[in-house]
Amino acid sequence: MLAKQVWRLSHDTDSLFYKVFKAKYFPNRSVFNARSTTGSFAWKSILRSKNLIERHARWGVGDGKSIQIFQDAWLPNANDGRILFHRGVLAPDASMAMLIDPNSGWWNNFVARHGQQMSLVRSTTTSVKWRPPRENLVKINFDGAMFRESDGAGLDVVIRNSEGEVMAALSEKIMKPQSAELVEIMAACCAVLFSSETGFHNSVFEGDSTTIIKLLQARNVSHSQSGHILKDILSHLNSFQSCSFSHIGRQGNVVAYALAQRARLSFPLEVWMESVPPDISSFVQLDLRV
């Protein structure tokens, strides 16, 4: 019976039961991330049942957006379902979506270790690894993220030179738009504006949304959902001496992606000049590895 209540607290999000318990015991995350051991007898009983479920339950991967690589149990054959990994490569709260090509649904080329090497194969993205731009150009990676646990979203941009050095970075938390496509085109617009405002007018823009990159390359302003934003982007591009848009896989866009996930905890707008937050610097260094 208590196991059923745990199920309700993870799925029946419209019920009064869910809203009361969430507000009190796990306001910012799911019931499976709740750690408070104080509260009513009912809550303590639910916690005991939750712990039992956690020991035996496994996530179905799907698109990976709801699963944390290191924190959640998703490996079917492991004792506790969790992966062992070099935490210096990915952030402790990294999402499984980072390992999945959003277009094909297949694993990106990635090697994880859990007692033995697992080959995660096939990627259909244009590029996998981040590469610095040519001399006298900057490369601007951008990403947008929808936060499932709240009504927020993140827009994030990082600008790097031909040596791979960070020239500027931005993280902005906004109200969640109607679709993931809109948040991606808004991130692209943010990247163009930020590049212009920081004085970089010879730019290569990279994003991991194939749909948005194709719209930007085609200059397709007739797109009904995001055409007005695309018009704004094209208007701002008139001040650029040179610019281009290219697609890169999630692995090659990991700095912007990590910043987008970090926006959950950010103030509405944060900007860094010639640096990134300390918890993002390892991703910058990873991109520079040969």
Rank of each mutant, 00 (worst) to 15 (best):
L120G: 00
L259G: 12
W74T: 01
F41L: 15
R48Q: 10
M118T: 06
V6D: 02
S119P: 01
T211F: 15
A258N: 14
Q285D: 13
E184S: 07
H11D: 08
I248H: 02
N141W: 14
V158D: 05
Q178L: 13
P27F: 03
W59Q: 04
D143R: 02
N238P: 01
G227L: 02
F240K: 03
D80K: 15
L216N: 07
I185E: 05
D63A: 07
V192L: 08
S171M: 13
F200D: 05
D208W: 00
S15P: 03
V6F: 06
E270Y: 02
I248K: 04
R148M: 04
A73W: 06
S235N: 05
A94T: 10
A258W: 03
F147G: 07
K50M: 12
P133F: 13
R58N: 06
A145Q: 06
K176L: 09
A94D: 07
L265G: 11
M96P: 02
M98W: 02
F283V: 12
R160Y: 03
H228S: 13
R219A: 09
S15G: 12
R29T: 10
C189D: 15
Q117R: 05
D12C: 02
S15D: 09
I159R: 01
Y18N: 09
S239W: 06
E184A: 09
M186A: 11
S150F: 09
